[in-house]
Each structure stands twice: as C-alpha cells, then as structure tokens.
Nucleic acid binder design. Structure first.
Length: 330
RNA sequence: CCGCCCUUAGCUCAGCCUGGUAGAGCAGCCGACUGUAGAUCGGCUUGUCCCCCGUUCAAUUCGGGGAGGGCGGACCA
C-alpha cells in the first residue's frame, strides 16, 4: 500500500486529492490532527478517526490530538472541571486503543486558544464570516436545542486551531465537513492557507441503520462497554444481508451498521477475520478483507448471525485494552 | 424595553373554553414468526401535566407572578 493509499483509505471525502498527493509525496514530518470534544464516553465514532491517525502515523506523519476543552465548553458540554476530567480519561483511552505514545502529541485547546494573537485572529475571522454561515456549519455538531453565540464562535476557532497548531492536514468525521469548508473559505481572507482535509464516514445507528451513531442517542459501542453489552448490542443490530439496505417506510436512507463496523473497525486492525460457525452450517470461515466478507453475506454464503458473532469477538478485542486502562484509572 | 405564541409520556402533540390528578401516534420493552436484525402479528410499560402563590371541597384545567423557548417590534406582502 503506497502512502497516498494509506492516507486516504476508508475516507469518505478527501479535500483535495491533489493536495493530499502532494503531502503523500513527502510525508515525513508532516503534521495532521483531529480535534475531539471531551464529551461523553469514547465510542466507535471516535475510534474511526483514531484509526485514520494510526494510518497517518504509519505513513510518517506527526499526529496531534486536540482535546478541545474550550470547544466543548462553548458547545454547552459542561463546566471546565467536568470537561478536564473527561479529557484526561479520553487521552488514556486513545493511547490504550493504539495510538503511538511517542508519536502522538496531545494538546488542550485552552493551552493556546486564549493567547492574544489567537484571539485577535479570531476576531478578524469573525469579521469575515456571516452568522448564518457559522451557524450552518454547526448543524451536525451543535449541542443543545438553542443556538448560542458561543456556537457560532466554535467553528471559527476550529479554523484557527489548524493554523495555530501548524498543521498540514485536518482529519474529522463527515459531520465536520461544513466547518472545514468554512475554514477553507475564510482562512485565506486573513492571510493563511486553506487547510487540506480528510473526512471519515459516519457509522449508522446500530439498531436502525439510519443516521449516524452518536453517544447522545441511539445505540453505540463505547470503550466502556462490557463484553456482554457489546454482544447484546450487536445481536440487536440491524443487519439485512446486503451492503445497501432499502430505505425505511418513511424514505430514510439506511446503511448496514454491521458491515460498516467490519469495514471501518475490524479489517483495518486485523489482518484476518475468522468467523466461527457451527458444523451444521458448514464450519468456520476465514476472510482477509472486507470485500470478500461482504460479498459472501450478499450471496448468502455467510449468514448475518454468524457474522455478528465474529463481530462481537473482534470488537471486544478492540475495546478491551481501553477498558482495562479505564479500570486501572479508577 | 414592548407585543403575540409555546411549555403535558423518551419524541411530536391532543385534552384545558364548560375544574373531579390524562390520552394518541411514534419510540421502548416482552412474546410469536424467521438460523441475525428488520418487516409482520399479539401483549405491556411510561408522567414532579415548567415553577410558586391564589380562588375552590377539589386546579394539568381558572386568576396572578416567575422561569425557559419561539416569533415580531426592518423590507416585502
């Protein structure tokens, strides 16, 4: 796998391919980041961007994880004290999950976001951005049901973070794309380069296959789940034997979250997946890529129930180190 | 600061005029059927009726006050 392929694999969107190819041509010492609001518990959504960071480390990038405490505060996620505590725990979980401690730089937003130069730049960007645009960029991120002024400042700070942290590449889930596009528009207006971005897909809600998995609602797999909880959630998961389920009765698009978890979480971290299957159904199966697993489910050679059993096993292996780390912290 | 509207189950809301502590749909849970889930049947659960004060035998309902939210107090029509 070449550098470009590794940098972009499993990405839902690359902005722009040309810019990433330039980075891929000389990846050593390049800097990439993901910003996380320390809110709730680390779940598979976070781990998806974490997988991307691991890819980038393997490609030679320096990786920065921004623990966006100020952003969480602006987004109504609690007091600074509460946010700090969550952030510390989150950092430990990321390391346990597999980010290389030597190559990963953890930064708190509050370490630099109150600097005079930062704030002056922020005001300059505020002047260049309409309230409607800022608000629109937050549609997938916004917490609470009432739009606050702080939530309009939020995306502008995100743009400035990319400059302040001296980054070559911004990584985020697809819910971040509007914020990143805003950054690409506005930063050049105040004399900075438009940032290059990679967006990871959003995994659908486990129970319904609709929308995106989130910690605030619906069913998600978190780093705190026990084996039994993971098993219960996967057993209940929506899983028609196809990669492209029909929309539901109300016309909402549906995905297959079980296959998504295999694609974005299991196969990137395991070279081989063994599906244990009772003899009566034909015995064990082995796959070394997602494509063959998905194809066999669609053809009927792999029953969803057997796939789910394997998914539980591998997800549990992924979650286990973080769970251990969390337990030792308490 | 002024005006109008809203606040009832997890969600969207009905009920309030004509006081007697509450309903629907969806969601959720359980069971049947499928070697998963979903779909489909069958069954079930759920409430400080935003808060305080007042009137009353009795207030979710009437009156007063307060809090939170939306929209106006531009143009256009």
């Amino acid at each position: 796998m070449d550098a470009y392929e590794r940098i972009t694999r499993n990405a839902a969107e690359v902005v722009t391919e040309e810019e990433v190819r330039e980075l891929a041509a000389d990846p050593e010492g390049r800097r990439a980041y993901v910003g996380y609001e320390p809110s709730g518990v680390l779940h598979v959504g976070h781990m998806l961007t974490a997988n991307k960071l691991i890819d980038l480390q393997e490609a030679g990038f320096e990786v920065v994880v921004l623990l966006a405490d100020v952003h969480a505060y602006l987004n109504g996620k609690g007091t600074f004290e509460e946010i700090e505590a969550t952030a510390d725990r989150m950092q430990a979980q990321f390391l346990a999950y597999g980010l290389d401690e030597e190559q990963t730089e953890f930064v708190y937003g509050s370490e630099f976001q109150f600097d005079r130069d930062y704030v002056l730049d922020l005001h300059a960007i505020e002047l260049e951005t309409s309230l409607a645009r800022a608000e629109r960029s937050m549609s997938e991120i916004q917490g609470g049901d009432t739009v606050r002024v702080s939530q309009a400042v939020y995306p502008l700070m995100q743009a400035l973070d990319i400059v302040s942290l001296d980054l070559d590449l911004a990584v985020g889930g697809m819910e971040q794309r509007k914020v990143h596009m805003l950054a690409r528009d506005v930063l050049p207006k105040v004399g900075y380069d438009a940032p290059t971005c990679i967006h990871t897909p959003l995994i659908a809600d486990l129970a319904t296959g609709i929308g995106k998995m989130s910690s605030s609602e619906g069913v998600t797999i978190s780093m705190e789940d026990t084996t039994a909880e993971i098993e219960a959630k996967i057993t209940d998961a929506f899983c028609p034997p196809t990669r492209e389920p029909e929309p539901d009765d109300e016309g909402r698009e549906r995905e297959n979250p079980v296959l998504q978890l295999f694609e974005y979480h299991v196969f990137p971290r395991f070279a081989e997946v063994v599906v244990e299957r009772p003899e009566q159904y034909g015995g064990d199966l082995t796959y070394d890529d997602h494509e063959s697993l998905a194809a066999e489910m669609e053809s009927g050679d792999l029953h969803p129930a057997d796939a789910k059993g394997a998914l539980v096993t591998y997800l549990d292996r992924l979650v286990d180190p973080g769970r251990e780390r969390l337990a030792s912290l308490r």
